[in-house]
Design a protein around this nucleic acid. Structure first.
Lengths: 268, 268
DNA sequence: TGACGAATGTTAAAATTCAACACAAAAATG
DNA sequence: CATTTTTGTGTTGAATTTTAACATTCGTCA
């Protein structure tokens, strides 16, 4: 599922298919100047990973929720997929039936939304992410509240002043956020200011601010600081976190939950 | 695309593939007791309609925007599909580049949204329908504004007091509505009061109220009246409308646009 | 009835897939 | 440093699948 399994050629083949929606073996053969069999094996692999679908003389894009999912957010999904999934499982277990929850529009929260939709807890979920809304809409036990506003095609989220105003109306028990970068002594960082205010509003309208941050986020800083470390009640991370960061983290936030990663990211 | 093109066997094959996600020609051959070639041609047709994807020895489900689309609204799409498509084409031609538009959450407006997404007019579109939002999100020329609020899984729309409050903020040039029933002397009717207010608010916040009503809607009344005939500026209907209704309609609304139905619903 | 068109069945040629083996380069081992 | 092992790639031909062309059946309508 995650891109790190792919070698260069496979990655390029996937990108090519992503751009053209479909490609023939012949086409790819000459484009990459390798034998038919090699392309064939690459496609076999990509098909196993469910990234493409094999057709007669070639392959086409698989993406189950086609167009909307071809968003940058969806692509980001594949990065550190195992960590995000593990964190999403821990996070979903941390949610009690009946609770009112906010999910922000990050790829990690999208994973969490998938887990939530699979379970059948009765929940009320507030979100400004179209992708999360779509995932949750599959489950009949979930009452969904969307913050309206201007749609941002890059993040697949609703943003802008009207979203912010709408956000002021809602109060939730647990608010889940992800982040671009996280310093366990300083706080969280984002590269754009787009969703800055919405995150701030919801953080001040909840009982518990929960940060989902896999170990690769630690130490990364970015353009603007969103949350001060003192605002964060709970952090859910994965077992890949090094000890130095863990010590600082545990000193600065009230609760740390660690999702256990399986040793190998097995492809069955 | 719409189910009425399909014969019984094709419909059953599709249902079978929908339930099993994938099927082989062999499997289908014996299941329907026809020759390999017949199944093959059925699958070819279903693949042309983009309902399934051909794979080596069979086919698998295509469903582009998977699960959410299995909603009651999406199913309603297939009813009078030809009429709705024809009306949607007329309606999309009636929209000028740069305009600000409202689309309500009906199946006819969803068809219109598809047509709009296919074209590349730069538009700003306000909607409270998740399905319409998803369709429009495919096009990069469209600025989408979502009315937030409580998600209603039956209609796939956002409703409730917060949606209404949000709706008060927006003013559009043309507002497109559909309806459950329509009397050309009285007005429009809905069977539920859910979206009543939102429709009313937008109708009072636009320059032009446009009703999309295929000929089957005429004469149908229902639980509650939404628009008085005097509120409606323009009606787009199809050529299947009988003369009596047409005379009354033209006497009561300023503009009537008629979408021409093709005699046969040809498969190319 | 019989001519017509649409849907289905039959067949064989063409194309594609697949599995087995061959080979070379890179990595691991002693 | 030579060697074994592993990994990735190429080649081949048999097996399978697809395709196109033609044959047949069925129902409809003059």
């Amino acid at each position: 599922m995650s891109y790190e399994n792919l070698n260069n050629r496979q990655r390029e083949i996937l990108e090519y298919i992503e751009s053209k929606k479909t490609a023939s073996y012949l086409e790819l053969e000459s484009k990459f100047d390798v034998s038919n069999m090699t392309i064939r094996r690459d496609i076999d692999f990509l098909a196993q990973e469910e990234l493409v679908i094999k057709t007669l003389g070639g392959a086409q894009l698989a993406k189950s929720i086609n167009d909307v999912y071809e968003s940058p957010v969806a692509n980001r999904l594949s990065i550190n997929g195992a960590e995000k999934k593990a964190i999403a499982i821990e996070a979903s277990n941390y949610i009690e039936p009946g609770e009112i929850i906010y999910l922000d529009g990050s790829s990690t929260c999208l994973e969490l939304a998938k887990k939530i939709a699979e379970q059948s807890k009765a929940l009320t979920i507030v979100t400004n992410s179209l992708l999360i809304h779509m995932e949750l809409a599959r489950s009949s036990n979930i009452s969904i509240v969307s913050l309206g506003g201007q749609y941002d095609p890059v993040s697949c989220c609703l943003t802008g002043p009207n979203t912010e105003e709408h956000a002021h109306k809602y109060f939730v028990k647990k608010a889940f956020f992800s982040t671009k970068g996280f310093s366990p002594s300083v706080g969280t960082f984002e590269s754009s200011a787009e969703t800055f205010r919405i995150k701030q509003i919801l953080a001040s309208h909840c009982d518990e601010v929960i940060l989902l941050a896999d170990h690769t986020k630690f130490g990364q800083k970015s353009l603007c600081k969103v949350f001060d470390i003192s605002q964060i009640h709970t952090v859910i991370t994965d077992s890949g976190l090094d000890n130095d960061n863990r010590v600082v983290l545990e000193a600065n936030v009230a609760k740390v939950i660690t999702a256990q990663l399986k040793e190998s990211v097995a492809n069955f």
